[in-house]
Design a binder for these strands. Structure first.
Lengths: 217, 217
DNA sequence: GCACAGCCGTACCGTACGTTACGGTTCGGT
DNA sequence: ACCGAACCGTAACGTACGGTACGGCTGTGC
């Protein structure tokens, strides 16, 4: 199965406007998003919505893909990999990821996809996973493997190492937000969490190289 | 705010039957659960459903509380606390928790609550969190604090330690299941994951006492 | 035996919303 | 200036479902 990662290439400027409006409405209204509401809020006709997106499912799918195309995790960058650089990079990933999953937009989209999972053909959940968790893994694994090649960390399976990192970063934050708990960390807390997760990950997988005790945050 | 943890005390046998049927239907149908469907499936009339539960929201709330009353995490038990006992207890918690959150029932219920979060007054999300994540924390924290008192582990904040343990146990499993990914670990994998999470948690928080190198799993 | 309460099954009502259809308007091409 | 395509705004249709009403059945207290 091929998941359309959708960089919003085939969309006209007007269509992007409509999707922006729909996304904003989704964040505000949640799953009560209605075709009439989108049309009114986007100043377009329902007929146009149906022509462009085929129906409600198509619109929702387009919204998910459109938002995904706007999420950009820190590019990997192929610089030298020493211990401080690795820590900085992991911390950056963690902070970016926390910022994404705690954003109202991401929460609304994940709620939509969760509620929609297992029903219908569109399978928004698959798309959200492809653009979220799996996209993150795709970006992070090369970093982990480069670090392993440089002797900084040790693990058998990059996938397992990634999942541990994921757990250390996300913890209970995402599920709590999805379930409506007010627990959204702001800037400073996110930075602190990212640093803690990185430290813990390196404590679990890091290789104690030489005496080098410096730069442990 | 007081959350009704609901041990199903005020329910007649017949009402439990109805809730069981409704829960089964919820697992099968997802959010498309309909009052008519519940009535048909439970061999009762809609009038009775409305009389007993007040409406759809009331029924959903009753379903959530009813299922929560059936979930039992390993009781804490106040035995001696040495390193192997601590590891065994953590592993037990982790395995129980993984079994719960990966069960189709839990997935269906969490999907329902997530989709329902932020809308309406019932606030199923709050109930699910109270009976899930927070109930787990309530059970686990005394164990962690007893272990700290015994000098086995070290941490400043039991809440933070719990959240780390939670992350190490759950990782990406729950969000993937909620989003419809087929990634349900079965018995052996759950046991392995529980052991790994426990080992990692003790590696992060455990106090290296004396030479004692035995019993590291 | 009988009145009555509780419940089942079903029919019914009102609404919300997805979907379709249509008249009017804007705009680019010729 | 004219034509056609695309699009806006709105009205209309059909259905699904939450909620309500009612007739019939069963079991229990007197």
């Amino acid at each position: 199965m091929v998941i359309e990662v959708g960089d919003g290439e085939g969309l006209s400027a007007r269509q992007r406007q409509v999707l922006d409006a729909a996304l904003a409405l989704l964040v505000a209204e949640g799953d009560r998003l209605t075709m009439t509401g989108v049309a009114r809020c986007a100043n377009c006709s329902k007929e146009t919505l149906y022509k462009w997106f085929g129906g409600r499912d198509g619109l929702l799918t387009a919204i998910v893909q459109w938002q995904a195309s706007g999420v950009r995790i820190a590019p990997v960058g192929t610089g030298t990999i020493d211990r401080p650089a690795l820590a900085a990079r992991l911390e950056r990933f963690a902070a970016d990821w926390l910022a994404v999953i705690t954003s109202p937009t991401s929460v609304a989209l994940n709620r939509l996809a969760v509620g929609h999972a297992g029903t219908g053909e569109a399978d928004l959940g698959r798309t959200v996973l492809a653009n979220g968790r799996f996209a993150l893994a795709r970006r992070l694994k090369p970093v982990l493997e480069a670090a392993r090649a440089a002797g900084l960390v040790a693990f058998d399976d990059a996938e397992e190492a990634f999942r541990t990192f994921f757990g250390l970063v996300v913890r209970d934050v995402q599920i709590r937000l999805l379930l409506g708990d007010r627990a959204r960390p702001e800037g400073a807390a996110i930075a602190a969490d990212a640093a803690r997760a990185t430290t813990q990950f390196l404590a679990l997988y890091g290789v104690r190289s030489r005496p080098a005790r410096a730069g442990q945050t």
